[in-house]
Design a protein around this nucleic acid. Structure first.
Lengths: 248, 248
DNA sequence: GTTGTCTATAAAATCGATTATATGTTAGTT
DNA sequence: AACTAACATATAATCGATTTTATAGACAAC
């Protein structure tokens, strides 16, 4: 069976449900639980070290969001992935993300600008590859990457756009993580560059940042669209883990 | 306390969680549980006649979708409503709905057309007002109304559009149900028309249907946008229940 | 050999009881 | 009177056990 990255790790004030939710989601997005795989609550209970109630609540939430499929009387399954689903996810994500930046650019104040610049700086200063394991992306980079993109849309006022957008961002991250294309790309990238170089997307991010600062929403949207479709192309470039049949 | 419309009513094959989910959602959308209201699990347990587990699972799902707010260690609350939220909901809903019809028009076959026509016919043949209580909308009309709009987008292939769109449709129904404007409108409508007349939106629906059948997506989008904003105007026309402070 | 039914087993769903956390109240201090 | 601390109460969150439902395997009938 797949080895879950996280067992018990409860922060203060949080509820166990919230913890399991985060851990489960992280493990699904990072591919510990593969698409289509059965999620036997008995096993999960042991792995995450909680009782059924918080576990099932977390699974229910994940099912409502779309990362998990809940079938009555037949338990939970990791949401499957496919090429069509990738295309769909990227398409809707792009649309929503463009709406989000556009609004963000309209509403953003100086603090918003400052936070974007700060987020970009953190991202640009972080090694793309994990120093310990140059075949995988640094978790810190992943965090900062997410935070940078979040900072772009932080001034968007729309409750629903932000909510939907986040779901789709996470789903795209799952595709990235399960993509052989990305893995292969990272290997060759590691060979070409020595150590703590800039990441291969840094130029993209810089351009997007500049467009946002220039309040040029049209340009920002176009750049984001390109940035996103580049990702899709890499994912599609090689057969990917999400295309395999689910194994138990 | 508010009187929940439904107690136990379990269909065969379904899980209790799914039942409570549906009943709770219906009661929230129909205003039995008002926006901002606390949802004490102990009380709900009695009202819906289930134990904590399925109840909390249902609440978790509702929280993930956005109809309920879950605060760690402080339980569940009905999602609040406001004018801004109404505007936002309608705006995003309109965008998604237009994408959905456009795609549906691209992909729809003769069956799709037939189902739309059938759904429209059912809707047009149903009295808008409840014969028993002419101050409220007939539940049958509400069902057929939803089914008609669903039929329009039924040929849309996008998983995410359909999913998000449904959430927003339900949220808009909640606004309609809690709107004094709609209530007032229904009263005057009941006076003007005698009995089983066509509903006030029938012309709108007919136009939208025709545009869809003519495969004119641009026109369909415009009509839908108008149709939706008419609803928003009515809701905003008078002070509404969702604008009141939540009472226990 | 295939199909169908029954049984045994495993898994999911649900319950009632327990524990942990928050909230409200009272008493004590300045 | 205002503030704080300790307690009591109410509510939420969690657990372990029970019940229900699905699934796999054996056996019988055709």
């Amino acid at each position: 069976m797949a080895r879950a990255s996280t067992a018990a790790k409860k922060e203060q004030g949080k509820t166990k449900t919230a913890d399991v939710y985060e851990n489960l989601k992280r493990d699904i997005v990072s591919g510990v639980w593969m698409p289509g795989t059965k999620l036997p609550i008995g096993d999960l209970r042991d792995v995450y070290d909680v009782s059924l109630s918080p576990l099932r609540e977390a699974l229910s939430r994940l099912a409502a969001v779309g990362f998990v499929i809940a079938e009555g009387q037949r338990g939970f399954t990791v949401a499957p992935m496919s090429e069509e689903h990738l295309i769909d996810t990227n398409r809707i994500r792009t649309t929503l993300e463009c709406m989000a930046v556009t609004e963000s650019i309209e509403n953003g104040d100086t603090d918003w600008e400052a936070n974007m610049i700060a987020a970009f700086h953190r991202l640009a200063s972080t090694s793309y590859l994990d120093p310990e394991d140059p075949s995988s992306t640094s978790t810190l980079w992943t965090t900062y990457h997410k935070e940078f993109h979040d900072s772009l849309v932080a001034a968007c006022q729309s409750f629903w756009i932000l909510r939907f957008r986040e779901t789709l961002s996470d789903e795209m991250e799952r595709f990235r993580n399960l993509s052989y294309g990305f893995t292969a790309r990272k290997r060759s990238y590691a060979k070409a560059h020595s150590k703590k170089d800039a990441d291969p997307f840094e130029l993209d991010h810089k351009k997007i940042l500049d467009a946002a600062l220039a309040r040029d929403s049209e340009k920002a949207c176009k750049l984001i669209e390109k940035h996103f479709s580049k990702t899709v192309e890499i994912v599609l470039a090689e057969k990917s883990a999400f295309a395999e049949e689910a194994l138990s």
